[in-house]
């Protein structure tokens, strides 16, 4: 269980990204975070694995205080939290295999991994992860030779290497064609059904309805809504996104 308490983040340049955000995520939930660009979604997700250090507030995971973890503890905590990014964040020149294996760095022998030596077990695990996302045949291609949808699947395979208990997905489909959105989110949904908690930021209302077990909404860094996906109708959506917002439908499959 993840518990976020009175979380605030002010960047050194004075931008106030989060203000007093509190919520809880039970194990096995698919929590969707919605809000305009700049509303603090990315900052919130990055505070959870401390890619960004919050200014105030605490985050507990299974009663461990993430915000107070030492660097060594933090690495152990991060191993259990997979992350999927809007821009995939793959090393484009490296092979798909290397990208996937790098998800295992938190577990690997530090010295052998620096030399690029991986145990067979990890290589098998990587192939299996790629099989799960249906691109095992691309294992030895360069990452930038793959399409956007395929690259995001490599991103998911990399997160799977961590054997995560939690996956943070920062707008995982925002850089993809709408038609690909479902294929990516279905992988996340499948992992969620296998017991991995997912916290995912999304933009499209119909995707929110389809995948979220619960939703929180941010506006200017403040939590303005928390509830089930069904409670978010057009009116609520307009309230969160502002009057001018026009909902764009992701094409249904």
């Amino acid at each position: 269980m993840l518990r976020v308490e009175h979380l605030s983040k002010t960047y050194p340049n004075g931008t106030r990204a989060l203000t007093d955000v509190s919520f809880e995520v039970a194990d096995g939930e698919f929590l969707v975070v919605i809000g305009l660009s700049g509303s603090g979604k990315s900052t919130l997700l990055r505070c959870i694995n401390r890619l960004i250090d919050p200014t105030e507030g605490k985050i507990f995971w299974d009663n461990i205080d993430i915000t107070a973890a030492t660097p060594a503890d933090l690495r152990h905590i991060r191993r259990n939290i997979g992350m999927v990014f809007q821009q995939f964040n793959l090393v484009k020149r490296s092979s798909v295999m290397t990208n996937v294996l790098s998800g295992r760095l938190g577990y690997a022998n530090p010295w052998l991994s620096l030399l690029g030596i991986w145990p067979d077990e990890d290589k098998k695990r990587a192939i299996k992860a790629l099989e799960r996302v249906g691109i095992a045949d691309k294992a030895y291609n360069r990452a930038d030779a793959l399409s956007g949808g395929q690259q995001q699947r490599v991103g998911i395979a990399r997160a799977l290497m961590q054997e995560p208990k939690l996956i943070l997905a920062d707008e995982p489909v925002a850089s993809l064609d709408p038609v690909l959105s479902h294929s990516i989110l279905q992988y996340l949904e499948q992992l969620n059904k296998e017991g991995i908690t997912v916290i995912c930021s999304l933009h499209f209302l119909d995707l929110v309805h389809r995948y979220a077990t619960r939703v929180i909404a941010l506006k200017d860094g403040i939590k303005v809504f928390e509830g089930s996906a069904r409670e978010i109708d057009r009116a609520k959506f307009k309230e969160i996104y502002g009057e001018e917002a026009q909902e764009v439908r992701a094409t249904a499959l």
Binding site: F85, V91, S113, G155, R158
Partner: peptide, 20 residues
């Protein structure tokens, strides 16, 4: 991006530099 991604996997600083 890759630095961020590898930091998030729990790899140490040297590993992150070597791999990303």
């Amino acid at each position: 991006g890759p630095i961020e991604a590898l930091t998030a996997t729990g790899s140490n600083r040297l590993q992150t530099v070597i791999y990303s």
